[in-house]
Design a binder for these strands. Structure first.
Lengths: 233, 233
DNA sequence: TCCCAAGATTAACGGAGATTTAAGTCGAGC
DNA sequence: GCTCGACTTAAATCTCCGTTAATCTTGGGA
């Protein structure tokens, strides 16, 4: 939903904790337990952040990172090193990792670094994503419109975040569905429409329409398409 | 629309998603589920891009590609390989595919590659198609004239894109209709004229006439035809 | 100048797609 | 294992886009 994180970690306990914990924080999380599947997932999807373990069974994390960086220099990578080895972390950073964390670590600490990396990428705006008079704080998961806090369900929140991150752009249902639900969109279900409805209801309690329908094309959050409609005169 | 894409994919879910998603993005999309019908469609129509699955029931995608490339070296082909097999993708590229994508893939990623391939072919200009003071960004589906955004319906958008891609050229109603509507033009319906009218209305709100009528021959977007009209001698 | 065909314009209709409401399902937490 | 709430499914209703159709306008030829 909204923000997609790939966790590459073979240790069952640590991996499970990471996935669960990050999901509770409202992220969409996928989990790979070896280098090969990690590589496939990296190529397949667009990720906002990658948490990558140093030691992996079939292929070490470093070479995954190196291959990944040949194509993608943007997506932040948080590197997990087995211990706080200076040489390891230097090598990781040299290969394009953005930050590292030595095991064992507290989940809190990892979360702080995740937010820091995402913040850096959001460009100045802190953990806050906003458009028009709506804003969401990704760290605290609080959404508000015109200063009034919104009480959103998890899916509504995820949907809003995705729309906010692509303001004034036509987003097809296919794209929205794949991002927010992390599934293929078969066009048979109207789940997306129902959530749009709920989100609109809550947003429009404190302002006018923000989510516009482009019939047959998708939805758009922001200014109504086509600028000013009925000009005066 | 305006831009025609052939999707060759036997998997119902993936194919359905591709067709629906690409249509939402404003393309005219046809769908073939086996090599034989794919071959027929390839020969029948003129396509701007082909998305071709590796595995097909009656005949594998590679041989379809090979046969197609004997006649057509221009049309970009995006190849879908079942997995990220290096040998598969090398073979595909050797046979004349322009790009590949390993399943599973996110729709977003496919869309990005589609735009990249079209861009390469559109000639430098990015995803932007323009003529005179009108331009359309195929990626964001935003159209504008003299900097003023236009609020176009799906069909109007498709029509405009087709006209923009063939500026200063007389386009018969038959050609326009078959490209934009993807149907035979029987000359009985005046749908095309109605859409031309609507499109003109929106375009001419911010400038003078751009779509000219060539009585009995069709329409032309661009400079008035023949320069000076009633020149003597 | 008159006539006719091609095209322009306007209004109305039908249906696909979108909205809305309500009932069903599933999982988390007690 | 029960209950509550979030999410999904289903179904009714509505809305708007694209088409049709009917009328008006224009241009070219006799």
């Amino acid at each position: 939903m909204g923000i997609r994180i790939l966790v590459v970690e073979d240790d069952e306990l640590i991996g499970g904790t990471l996935v669960r914990g990050l999901r509770e924080e409202g992220f969409t999380v996928e989990h790979a337990t070896d280098g090969e599947s990690a590589w496939q997932l990296l190529q397949a999807g667009s990720w906002d952040l990658v948490v990558l373990d140093w030691w992996l069974p079939s292929q070490d994390g470093l070479s995954v990172l190196r291959r990944f960086r040949e194509r993608d220099h943007e997506t932040p990578v948080l590197f997990l090193t087995a211990r706080d080895s200076v040489t390891d972390r230097v090598r990781g950073l040299n290969e394009g990792a953005d930050d590292y964390l030595g095991k064992p670590f507290a989940f809190d600490e990892l979360l702080a670094r995740v937010h820091a990396l995402l913040r850096r990428r959001e460009g100045r705006s802190g953990t806050i994503v906003s458009a028009a008079d709506v804003s969401v704080d990704l760290a605290t998961q609080k959404a508000e419109r015109a200063g009034v806090p919104l009480d959103l369900k998890a899916k509504e929140y995820a949907l809003l975040v995705y729309l906010l991150r692509n303001p004034d752009e036509v987003l097809s249902k296919t794209r929205i569905y794949e991002h927010v639900w992390d599934e293929r969109y078969d066009g048979l279900s109207n789940t997306l429409e129902v959530h749009i409805f709920e989100l609109r209801r809550k947003l429009e309690a404190h302002g006018d329409r923000l989510i516009h329908t482009l019939r047959g094309r998708g939805y758009l959050l922001g200014n109504p398409p086509g600028g000013v409609k009925g000009n005066g005169s």
